[in-house]
Design a protein around this nucleic acid. Sequence first.
DNA 1: GGCACAGTTCCATGATGTTCGAACAGTAAT
DNA 2: ATTACTGTTCGAACATCATGGAACTGTGCC
Lengths: 107, 107
Amino acid sequence: MPATVHRDLAHPDVADLALADVLFALSDPMRLAIVRQLACGPLVELPCQEVGGPAPKSTRSHHLKTLREAGVIRNVPHGRERRVSLRRAELDSRFPGLLDAVLSAAP
Amino acid sequence: MPATVHRDLAHPDVADLALADVLFALSDPMRLAIVRQLACGPLVELPCQEVGGPAPKSTRSHHLKTLREAGVIRNVPHGRERRVSLRRAELDSRFPGLLDAVLSAAP
DNA sequence: GGCACAGTTCCATGATGTTCGAACAGTAAT
DNA sequence: ATTACTGTTCGAACATCATGGAACTGTGCC
């Protein structure tokens, strides 16, 4: 598989999300920070560059991949960049209260 | 440090619990199964033998250690064995709704 | 005391995750 | 077309985790 930036990346269906995978995706400080950032208000869409703080882009991309494959975030092409957003409604329907509990936890 | 079975094992204080550590502890199928088992009713206390299904005791002990150090479970000496239980109230006070969300998730 | 039992710790092995530079591929501008 | 920009993928070094057998220790029973 070539390194195509703008291929439609695989996003798991809501019904296929595994709790353990979601919990693992959220169990990393940087990924947790990304999720919190995307949860700051409704419909937050950010380019990959602007999430996760200062880190090499390959590292950031790796964490975004982990979150995406667990079903936590969406990552869609948008012009020359990619926009990342929380799959909040879908996550809430599959694991009610989980995201709220994680987000409302004291840092 | 010798392998003393009945030393008082270290249990982190509630205020020191880290969300990422708790989420990681819960992100493993076997550990999740243990937590679910301990959550079947109030005040469930079980010997280590009886949690986590069929697995070598060293493997079971490893997972119990992970859960204990994250602050998810308690592990106290009791006669010749050890009793394991959920730190439910403490967990609820530190991360409200988290355990409920995890436990109510469809398997 | 001696023995069986429960469970932790040690150790080694393999699997998985993290990090980051380098190469690569769309996109959009000049 | 060439160039700059964004972000993914590859590859490799390193770290961490999972698994399970063996050794060991506290406890209770004989």
